[in-house]
Every structure is written in C-alpha cells, then in structure tokens.
C-alpha cells in the first residue's frame, strides 16, 4: 500500500451505529456500524438487492432508518443512478445550476470539469452524452459541491479504465484535503486503505 499524506483535519465525520433498514416489509440489513473521520474511506460490497443503495439513501437522510442512528459532521454529496441534470441544457449550464445551489464558485466547477476530463464536452446538451460521460458529469457535481462527505453509489458504472483512474485520483485528492468517502460498488474501486463492509455479513436471513 502506498504511503498517503496525512489528511487535512477538516472535522468531517460520519458515524453509523447499529443501523438497520426496512424496505417493503423486509429487513434488508441490520447491525451496520461504521465510523469515518477526515481522510478515511469505506467500501460497501454485496450482491445486487442486498441493500447497498438503500444504505446510501438512509445515510443521506432520504430514507428513515428502521433502527440505529446516523451522525454526521459536514455537508453531503451523493451520486446514484439518477442523473438529476436538465437534459436539454448544455452540460456546463446544467451543472452550474447545482453549483449555484451548493454555493460553489464557477471556478470550482471548472476545476471539477477538468478533473473529470469534461471541459471539451461543456457545451454539449446533457441528452447527447453517453452513459460514462453522464456518470462523469455527476461526479463533477460531487467534486464541485465542496461537500466533505461523499456518498458514491456505483460510481464506476459505465466508466472506462481511464475514467476509473480519474475517479481514483479525485477520491485521493478529496481524502487528502480532509474529505471522507463512502462508496458502494460491485466492482473494485481505486481507493487505498478503505474499510470494507460486506453487507452479506449484515443480511437478515429470510424466516
């Protein structure tokens, strides 16, 4: 494992205590514990339908936890399978809307676009972008948001090898600057020293 520089102390923190999630009358997982401080990362794995995305949504506060608590210090940024960009607008404009909501500067957005190698695609309408380009646009929104806590749900879906390397660099830079990352993926992500959580260990056996 390569030596990583000590992260900037940002005070960002994410703590899941004894978390359980109930969806459609079925207990998906229980007893999930995790504590992440600035610079740390966790990788959530498990087969389809085990509840990775549900866990992400519970952590994001979009779904209620059935049991347990989520505590966090710092703002959140989430990417999931939904684009949340206006299809007819040029990509840079669609992202600029979110940068405005996030209070991020146009310069921060330009840096984020550059990080994801999207600068050339900025004037292209979102509906013309390919799957991987859309995914990179979503990641650019996360980078530009400046939020210290990143929740990445399947961030590498549809990305080619070069883009996955860009994603790895972005995650490393984010952690070095005091951010933390919780990622869910069924494929390996370039994330050094990530705490692994296999949701199969927390699954509730069907009665």
């Amino acid at each position: 494992m390569s030596e990583r520089p000590a992260p900037v102390p940002s005070g960002a923190r994410l703590r899941l205590a004894d978390l359980a999630c109930l969806r459609g009358g079925r207990l998906l997982f229980h007893h999930v514990n995790l504590s992440l401080a600035a610079g740390e990362a966790a990788m959530l794995t498990g087969p389809n339908g085990i509840g990775k995305s549900s866990l992400m949504r519970v952590v994001a506060g979009l779904l209620p936890a059935f049991a347990g608590t989520v505590e966090r210090e710092g703002a959140l940024a989430l990417t999931d399978e939904r684009l949340a960009l206006d299809m007819e607008r040029p990509m840079a404009d669609a992202l600029a809307f979110w940068a405005m909501i996030d209070g991020a500067s146009p310069a921060a957005l330009a840096v984020a676009l550059d990080r994801m190698a999207l600068t050339n695609l900025a004037p292209v309408p979102v509906r013309m972008l390919s799957t991987g380009q859309r995914k990179r646009a979503m990641l650019a929104r996360v980078i530009a948001s400046g939020a210290p806590i990143w929740l990445l749900d399947e961030p590498a879906n549809g990305l080619d090898t070069a883009s996955i390397a860009l994603l790895g660099e972005a995650i490393a830079a984010h952690r070095a600057s005091g951010g933390l990352v919780l990622a869910a993926s069924h494929q390996p992500l370039p994330m050094d020293g990530a705490i692994g959580i296999d949701l199969r260990d927390h699954a509730v056996e069907p009665a």
Binding site: G61, L62, L78, R82, A84, W98
Partner: peptide
C-alpha cells in the same frame, strides 16, 4: 424520477 428532488433535499 431524475433525482432532482432528492438532490435538493440532501442539500
């Protein structure tokens, strides 16, 4: 459906 409402809520 596009997730805009969720993205706004978590902000």
């Amino acid at each position: 459906d596009a997730g805009v409402i969720d993205q706004l809520s978590l902000r």
